[in-house]
Write a protein that binds this DNA or RNA. Structure first.
Lengths: 224, 224
DNA sequence: GTCTATAAGATGATAGAC
DNA sequence: GTCTATCATCTTATAGAC
């Protein structure tokens, strides 16, 4: 299976065919920079410096290449944060890492890539599968941190880490899209979210009296 | 200016050329259902039941038509909520109206339209202008409500209504995209956000003691 | 104002030489 | 494994008949 080539070959393990590798990288970059609307075989091949026909030889279809490229890309970027996430134990730290991650991934273009992928996924089942995979990878990492950070605190019984992780991921994607048309507005939105995060953090650190009052109110509100 | 036709004609005021009107509606629907990647003159014209060449006669380019269609659509949908928003005076009511709006706009497809528009706007300046316009309309409405609801309460000094409105708009768009690939996950995310909203609501309704403690903590955290 | 016809180019994908 | 050449099909946009 050195490379009879019809498609699979999975992860970038061992030594991958250099053309395959170039195409994977070029596909991710094209998605980031040209968006889903401009995603076509020729632009990708041009960026990779190889012939357009090789996309179909190696990956069958353009969507097949994009699928493989997204999986490789998300595998790499989540791995990068895995141990950083593992060291986070408080909400304060989580907010700090979150800000750092947000800035780094933004300039790497991975959030933009996810946004374009999700937009295209609404109509293309192959892209939808890739998008599902990517979102699951990210939310799994985030969910684990949120769960650990909330554990033991008063928020443990109120917060659903799985839901929060998904809301965070989706929210960042929406903000990234919004930033493309109104950078100042998106920045204001992000700041507001950080303030809200700080608020929750404060809540998590409340004295027992206020904490009890809070819990009672929450229960009453839920019932209503 | 009944219709010498080269382009403008602005709002759907008075009596608009029926072909123009059909094209505007068809463009919005095509954007909702086919997405930005499949957006082309022929599918739009087919949906409108008119000839493809009329798009260029009436709107110059496909992007010009989409721009006009989005502006008309957002004008209509924000107007629909204006008086409903005006009657909201508390955070509880805001959350209820928000849920209602979310469901109604989702089934109308307006959030999906905005998401596809934003995705395409990253690469197309004409679409970016339309997206800016649409986001401004929505955030202006939401910002006014948030400001009114927060006014007088303890959150007034902590919350930035403009930023919150933008975060809400962008967040819903991200969730809409996410729902297209993982409906259950998006639902969990939305529920988590509603819980967080209820939490903030409780905060807004806290007794003076807890309120003072909260304020002090927030100030300390901000300084750090 | 609307149509048909068409130009000029981009698209995914394949066949076959090397 | 990579290339050239090519297909049928799609795209935006225009010219001109009606």
């Amino acid at each position: 299976m050195t490379d009879g080539s019809p498609f699979p070959a999975g992860v970038a393990g061992a030594a991958m065919n250099p053309t395959r590798a170039k195409l994977l990288a070029a596909a991710a970059e094209t998605l980031r920079h040209e968006g889903i609307a401009g995603l076509a075989a020729r632009p990708i091949a041009a960026r990779a410096g190889v012939n357009q026909a090789l996309i179909f030889y190696h990956f069958g279809t353009v969507a097949g290449l994009v699928d493989a490229a997204v999986r490789a890309s998300v595998e790499e970027s989540t791995a990068f944060y895995r141990d950083r996430f593992a060291r986070v134990t408080s909400l304060v730290e989580l907010l700090q890492v979150g800000r750092e991650l947000h800035e780094r991934e933004r300039s790497a273009g991975n959030v933009a890539m996810m946004a374009q992928l999700l937009a295209g996924a609404q109509q293309d089942e192959a892209l939808a599968a890739a998008a599902r995979f990517a979102m699951q990878r990210w939310t799994a990492e985030i969910e684990a941190v949120v769960r650990r950070v909330v554990e033991g605190g008063p928020l443990a019984e109120l917060a659903d880490p799985a839901g929060i992780a998904r809301a965070i991921s989706a929210g960042f994607i929406g903000l990234e899209l919004y930033e493309g048309v109104d950078a100042a507005g998106a920045s204001a939105g992000l700041t507001a979210l950080e303030q809200l995060g700080a608020l929750v953090e404060v809540l998590d650190d409340l004295g027992p009296v206020a904490r009890r009052a809070l819990r009672a109110k929450v229960r009453r509100t839920r019932a209503g």
